[in-house]
Write a protein that binds this DNA or RNA. Sequence first.
DNA 1: AATTTTTTAGACAGCATTGTCCAATTAGTC
DNA 2: GACTAATTGGACAATGCTGTCTAAAAAATT
Lengths: 218, 218
Amino acid sequence: MAPTTIAPDIPLPRGHAAKRVSILEAATDVFCREGYAGANIDMIAAEAGVSRQTIYNHHGDKEKLFVAVVRALTERANAGIFATLATFPDHPADLEAELVDFAVRLNRNCICNSDGKYLRKLIEAEGRRYPELFDTWRENGPSKTWAALAARFARLAHGGYLDVDDPDVAARQFLALINADLHVSMVLGDQLGEERVREAARNAVRTFLRAYGKRKSI
Amino acid sequence: MAPTTIAPDIPLPRGHAAKRVSILEAATDVFCREGYAGANIDMIAAEAGVSRQTIYNHHGDKEKLFVAVVRALTERANAGIFATLATFPDHPADLEAELVDFAVRLNRNCICNSDGKYLRKLIEAEGRRYPELFDTWRENGPSKTWAALAARFARLAHGGYLDVDDPDVAARQFLALINADLHVSMVLGDQLGEERVREAARNAVRTFLRAYGKRKSI
DNA sequence: AATTTTTTAGACAGCATTGTCCAATTAGTC
DNA sequence: GACTAATTGGACAATGCTGTCTAAAAAATT
């Protein structure tokens, strides 16, 4: 539909574009707070500081607006994940410290940030009703993330840093441990401080390395 | 689902009670599928095989009905969790095998069953709008579960079966590992087979014991 | 069998929401 | 400054949902 894929600058009026992102932000907020059925256009218009008609001009439809919200969220979230994955410590000097740093980045930039939380909530709440929407996320969402992370762990193992039998399992368990302490806090919507995220990462990595670390003996 | 909890027979009119649970079941289903705002009474009435007025006779209000649904769900889920916690292997002959069995029970009876999935989804979707509802769950929900599980792990450590420094962390990580493989499948709503649950439990316990198991050397 | 309770179907008012239309106003462009 | 595109507020019909009311039917109780 709209060629918003890669184009850096579209010859659209500036105020127009500003309204567009303002609408999209407000819609994201309201859809996540109230759910698709619970959200109404007037709420979104008010929160965006925009007239209701403008929303219809831009997106035509409540459902189309929702799709646009999810698409923007998915793109940003995926970009964030792969950018963070690129910072994985392939040749660590201090494995534990660098894995902790990586885990903190993963949590703060992908899982605990607003994009991540919003996207997960929308997928969970409305995923069943919009399967095609969910497919898009599934395809370049968790499965690719896991595969990429598994490849990194496999490389670490190959380099003698880790003792990993099944990299896929190790990758999933790494992510699970990372979130062990934060999951409930996030469901409650608590804002978690930097120190709590670090502490969770430390706990996770310590356990992960006790399970998968190279034995220092001999 | 018959109320297989403890009560054998309650001296209420049979048809009346039957309608009541039928309504509650249908309401649970619809609320979880559509969300609170998206659910409507006619849907629930149709799915319960009951007239709309009957629902109002029984529960008076959409909101009251919702509260009743969440309350029933919470009670059943908590009962299931503590019943399962009671089967924790305190004096294991084969620690790994018994922990795997325990993990399978936990997943099948508490986390992956319909009560668990429904309750989590409702809490996530509507928890912010109904804080008091959420408080009830929080109080005898995860925090108590974690504490109880942590106590069991502490006892295992005290008995020389495990090498655990922080039982609370260990308990949370155990639960996280248990669900590492299943979490995404559950979000998608896939029905997971017995074998997949067992495999996930085996992976989790293996890693858990590599991290916290007593070293066999010397 | 008689009586009481419960259920049912339907109609109904009240309300909220979606999406459209339009005239007036504003902002951006030449 | 003139012109064009976008925005605004408001009115509007159409729709769907909640919750109430009714009289009739069904079910349970005695």
